[in-house]
Design a protein around this nucleic acid. Structure first.
Lengths: 227, 227
DNA sequence: GAGCCACCTTGATCGAAATCAAGGGCAATC
DNA sequence: GATTGCCCTTGATTTCGATCAAGGTGGCTC
């Protein structure tokens, strides 16, 4: 399979491109660039002009903001198959609202916004899908704002663990933490110390058992009830 | 001017309808209902099936969530001219993600989602505007999440005061708090006590002067610098 | 005008999580 | 195999904002 064919394959599985026809996709491909990156490499900074959006193929990326005091909040962790910065293109003067940095080396597709917008004009179905996706994102933000204001750190951590449990699983489950614990902490807006202590406390309660990056949950229902 | 004509006038100033033609607007009007409400009246609850979205004409509405302990977080305060619940319609199984309650009596337009979606299919420009608006909302959420996690309550309160200052104003400005202080507190995720104390502290620093609902800011620049 | 209620303020205390500080384990490098 | 650096953990202390508790004030109704 040629490199281009492989890229095409990646594209058509993604919601941003699923409803496009062959011609539109070919067209887009001429405006798509493959870019690899290293761990720790800065991909773009907050307020950089945004002419492209991205689709991660391999590796891991964090989208984050930094406070005046240098404290970091991870807004999203991007894993392979996920797109990011795609909604920025609808702004009049598009600028990235966060910093993006590689966490684990990998590669991504950079897709130019302008050509995509032109194509979008001809595909209401894709428009609709994009809007549905944006709505999902908005609701996720509301959930996060709720968790940050109405719930304590233990709740957020338990909620996060439960989000890793596969759909429909019951009884005993092993979940694997997808990144370094300090990154997960930054995502949940707690310090690494608090995450460590909370996991320990949950272990003491017998609700989980932690071994490195594997968390065994003996009884998902019990954990859910003790949120 | 007839009641319908007045409603039409309200519609065409709003981004959701600005790009529609006369025929489309007339069509929509047959699926639009005027509804008045009292202070304290519940308009819809979280998880109610959502077949309509809204445009506030008069009064004030709060969109909020409630924790298990009964604590309230105001997600948005709706003022006349603002629409709400419009992005829910893009979901497959639309349900309101928050509670809505009247704060000050007033009236709103309830617009059926299905007919609007049909019309949207024929107006890419409106699609584009809707997506731009959703992007703005998403970025506002990121700002809020950042403020909640990286900034303290004083910062959030000062930031809120500055958000009330008219665009481009410098030097001394008087701003009027748009609602009860307890509601503003709930929006900023602080207790009324903390809001009261912080306003007092800012007064002591000479950065503001509070008289009832009017906050005088002698020097906007100075306040901005002391965030 | 008395009484009531909603809202705001002020003071005292408490508590959850951050910060500060120290140490351990492991992988990479020389 | 020693050294370095990065993560993570654990303990001690601090701090910000919440909670608890008491007034104060103004607008209602009766």
């Amino acid at each position: 399979m040629s490199a281009d064919a492989k890229v095409l394959k990646d594209l058509d599985h993604h919601y941003l491109f699923a409803a496009l026809n062959e011609e539109q996709r070919e067209d887009l491909l001429t405006h798509t660039h493959l870019r690899s990156f290293k761990a720790g490499q800065l991909l773009f900074s907050r307020n950089d002009p945004a002419q492209t959006f991205f689709l991660l193929q391999r590796g891991e990326i964090k989208l984050y903001r930094v406070s005046a005091e240098g404290q970091e909040k991870v807004m999203r962790l991007i894993r392979p198959g996920m797109s990011f910065a795609e909604s920025v293109m609808f702004m009049d003067e598009p600028r990235y609202p966060v910093h993006a940095q590689g966490v684990r080396a990998g590669a991504l597709l950079a897709i130019e916004s302008e050509p995509y917008l032109k194509i979008l004009r001809e595909s209401f179905d894709t428009c609709r899908t994009v809007m549905a996706q944006m709505t999902r994102r908005i609701q996720a933000h509301w959930d996060e704002i709720e968790a940050l204001t109405l719930q304590n750190s233990r709740y957020r951590i338990v909620h996060y663990l439960l989000s890793l449990v596969p759909e429909g699983a019951t009884g005993a489950v092993d979940v694997t933490l997808p990144s370094r614990k300090s990154l997960i902490a930054a995502q949940l807006a707690v310090t690494p110390e608090t995450l460590s202590r909370t996991l320990h406390a949950l272990s003491d309660d017998g609700l989980i058992a932690v071994h490195e990056y594997v968390v065994r949950i003996p009884d998902v229902g019990a954990l859910r009830r003790r949120m």
